[in-house]
Design a protein around this nucleic acid. Structure first.
Lengths: 67, 67
DNA sequence: AAATAGTGTAACATATATTTTACACTATTC
DNA sequence: GAATAGTGTAAAATATATGTTACACTATTT
């Protein structure tokens, strides 16, 4: 479950801890999402999108071929 | 959890049952997603996107204000 | 009026996401 | 070299998504 969360977070100059607080998600969960080890819920995806000012496509889209 | 799955499905002339078969998701789950009663996983969202040829943004984006 | 297609939904079981708590590891700083 | 910040991750508990089975309802068709 590859994504661009880490890149977007760094662009916002946020630590995992800070992103966790702003999203209401656990730091551990964010770490796992960034490492691609999770299949997050749409709600979590949107929560992250809002904080880092990116769209679902920008953060979570995966081309069919790479899926 | 509002979305545009039903619209996209009808545009493809698919019944819930047919979409279920093509995505490998249960018809019941698709029904609940369409009714906005679920918080689907990213994987399910992508599975649906691929079948109806729409992006995550097109099917599942929700503006922060409407969230 | 029975039969069928399409959909909504409820109950229960199961899988899995998410949290909680905790520890390890690598820099960096004092 | 202790202290701290940032991150990865493991185990257990909990919440919730998803599947399974089943039934109800409407509309359409025969």
């Amino acid at each position: 479950m590859k994504n661009n969360v880490k890149l977007a977070r760094l662009q916002m100059n946020l630590t995992q801890q800070q992103l966790a607080e702003k999203t209401g998600i656990t730091r551990q969960t964010i770490s796992l999402i960034e490492k691609g080890k999770y299949n997050p819920s749409l709600k979590l995806c949107l929560d992250i999108c809002y904080v880092v000012n990116k769209s679902l496509n920008e953060l979570f889209w995966i081309d069919k071929e790479d899926y």
